[in-house]
Design a protein around this nucleic acid. Structure first.
Lengths: 209, 209
DNA sequence: CTGATCAGCTAACACTTGTACGCTGAATTC
DNA sequence: GAATTCAGCGTACAAGTGTTAGCTGATCAG
């Protein structure tokens, strides 16, 4: 029967308030307070449940935070992968990727800020989680540089590590900035990434000869 | 008389407990908690004074935090300036600067973490303060690239901005890392900065022709 | 239909937090 | 020597914190 295959009204409701908790946390994040000074009670209040009901969904606030980090990295990577597919119809991969990235930062400032902030803060577990996300980006970039551009492993690694550092750091510059300034930052970042690419190209030539 | 010229026993004592407060804050920072979830009471306790006496020295915790940021930037810049003087007796400016920087991060992990973390967190005032520190570094680097290396203003700016991003980002990589790994990171950072320099050099040549 | 499950609730706990108020005694000024 | 300043203290308070324990009622499985 159709009914027996459905997810179940209970599980459905549970997932719904779980999302409510996640959204509440993101809202409170977009304010001035960092994640570390976020209170279980306030998050629960904004989600519309009793404080004690929080524990039905997460063991503690940290578990919620790690969930946020994971989700942020996931959606960002999906976005970039979609962007790269659009490139096949022509266009600079550097430009499209960076513009997509900057758009994401503009749309999801709160959660991106969490990512950058927890990279250097709180528990080791948080830092590891963020570092893992950065590694994902780096890995995809390495693959591109090696397979499509023909760089050797060492140079591809060095290069992509530098690029990830530059791009994410530029993302942090976008926080207190209006739209036109963000475009300027994007433009500058594109030029900087090209600087790195040109340097790597020159290095490769020097090694070959 | 010598006595009348001395700073005064009272002012001296006040400065002493002020330092105690600053040190206490740094200690608590080196633990897992970020600055935002640092309590006035605990800092006062570790400094050995009553909670209410805190207000004799700072209007609130934020004022203490900004003091920390300022001090961190100041000592780091002094360190790098000293390092650059040592270079006149030969040696790569890139290598010496980065090795000095990494040593600073190793010695002052707690306070450097504050710098990186507040860059993306808390109040706008904090972010501005940190950004100001980064601008200082960038400015000194621009000056060097223009005057000593003969880059034009635009290329010097683009280049030094990228370098500052890479180096500070590498600093963040040093947090959960032992000594040998830190040396590896330093080495990698040196290579990356050289990549940027080489790219800028290539760009300059292309423009001239 | 019956019994088990479990998301969400209320009440209550033992703390910690920032800050206001007024006092004290030593250092300073005149 | 007398008057003033002021770093540091103790007390107190209203708010907010995380977490425990136990109840309720809708949803589920058999």
């Amino acid at each position: 029967m159709a009914k027996s295959q459905s997810i179940g009204v209970r599980a459905q409701q549970k997932e719904k308030t779980r999302r409510a908790l996640i959204n509440a946390a993101m809202n409170q994040l977009s304010a001035e307070t960092g994640f570390s000074s976020l209170s279980l009670r306030e998050v629960a209040r904004e989600a519309g449940i009793a404080p004690t009901s929080f524990y039905r969904h997460f063991r503690n606030m940290d578990e919620l935070g790690l969930t946020l980090v994971d989700e942020c990295g996931l959606t960002l990577r999906q976005l970039l992968r979609q962007a790269r597919q659009r490139i096949d119809k022509g266009g600079s991969i550097i430009r499209v990727s960076i513009e997509t990235f900057m758009q994401f930062v503009a749309d999801n400032t709160a959660i991106f800020r969490l990512l950058l902030q927890e990279r250097t803060g709180r528990s080791r577990e948080f830092r590891k989680a963020v570092e893992r996300e950065l590694e994902h980006f780096k890995a995809e970039l390495i693959e591109y540089l090696r397979d499509e551009q023909g760089f050797n492993a060492a140079l591809a690694d060095l290069q992509s590590d530098a690029i990830v550092k530059i791009v994410f750091s530029a993302g942090a510059d976008c926080f207190d900035v209006d739209n036109t300034q963000r475009l300027r930052i994007a433009e500058q970042t594109i030029q900087q990434v090209r600087l790195v690419a040109r340097g790597a190209e020159a290095t490769r030539r020097a090694r070959v000869e």
